[in-house]
Design a protein around this nucleic acid. Structure first.
Lengths: 155, 155
DNA sequence: TGTGAAATTATCCGAAG
DNA sequence: CTTCGGATAATTTCACA
């Protein structure tokens, strides 16, 4: 469940064209192969083969849609810093937090705190409810919540 | 530059089919309209019209590729909590941090700290360099860095 | 890697509920 | 207003050079 461990070694033979394709797909994940081909100076078929290969080697893990959650009524975003009891292992941390539907991501971190939990909720009342739910999952010994006022994301 | 303010009001007329389409596109952003149509019980044309409308209303902001950065040699991910001098405004915070190429996202937050900066770097030496660079941007008064050991992301 | 052909899909139209 | 069916354009996909 946690994204770590085996199979994550670096892929060696990535060239500038591959990097250009990744950049183009980052800008628009539904770009056509013909469009990308024109920009990198390859044929459509060769471009498709490279993208297929990037998927096979695991460099590309998927494609997704970007959604403005505010427009769906989920206006509040927050990070909750969480400390767990010393006996709690990492798997349990991720499992208990990810079970909450409002939790978008769980980062286990090094240092005095154990995890950074990203949540998205409808309003402040909802945020309070989610934090209470997290704290009641048993092994949590303390939380500090950072409410997001604004965000900037690359590209 | 910072994603906040006007034009972010909730879109009212989103029904269950729209939500299903968003879920399908979240799973696979390159899914065909024919595929989605079959799953939600609409025609291809009707499905395309709904997705077009979700883009026009701003619910869908784009499509992108998901990349395993470890495979590209960017093995280390971290969050840096940043405090700024009292005179610094939000725009400056985001601008100085986002200028660093290693910075993936900047979240301005409420509370005793001002921003949470997400960075991705090649190794620990590189992490040190980025943090030093952030601290030297002038107005920063303090940082605390959380190195990511593992991550879980929804779906 | 490129070319070309075939299968699939996207896109637009008028018509209908 | 949304949907459907069909017709055309564009794209994907694959075998072979």
């Amino acid at each position: 469940m946690l994204n770590k461990g085996a199979g994550d070694n670096q892929v060696e033979d990535i060239d500038d064209i591959d990097r250009a394709l990744l950049r183009l797909l980052h800008e628009d994940g539904r770009r056509t192969f013909a469009d990308m081909a024109a920009q990198v100076g390859l044929s459509t078929a060769a471009t498709k083969r490279r993208v297929d290969r990037l998927r096979e080697t695991g460099v590309i893990t998927g494609f997704t849609v970007q959604v403005d959650h505010k427009k769906l009524g989920w206006a509040v975003e927050a990070f909750s810093e969480v400390r767990y009891a010393g006996t709690t292992n990492v798997t349990d941390i991720v499992e208990t937090a990810s079970r909450q539907p409002e939790v978008q991501a769980v980062y286990t971190v090094a240092g005095d705190l154990d995890a950074l939990v990203q949540v998205r909720v409808r309003d402040l009342e909802h945020l309070q409810e989610v934090i209470d739910r997290l704290r009641r999952t048993g092994t949590i010994t303390g939380t500090r919540t950072l409410m997001v006022l604004g965000r900037w994301t690359r590209s």
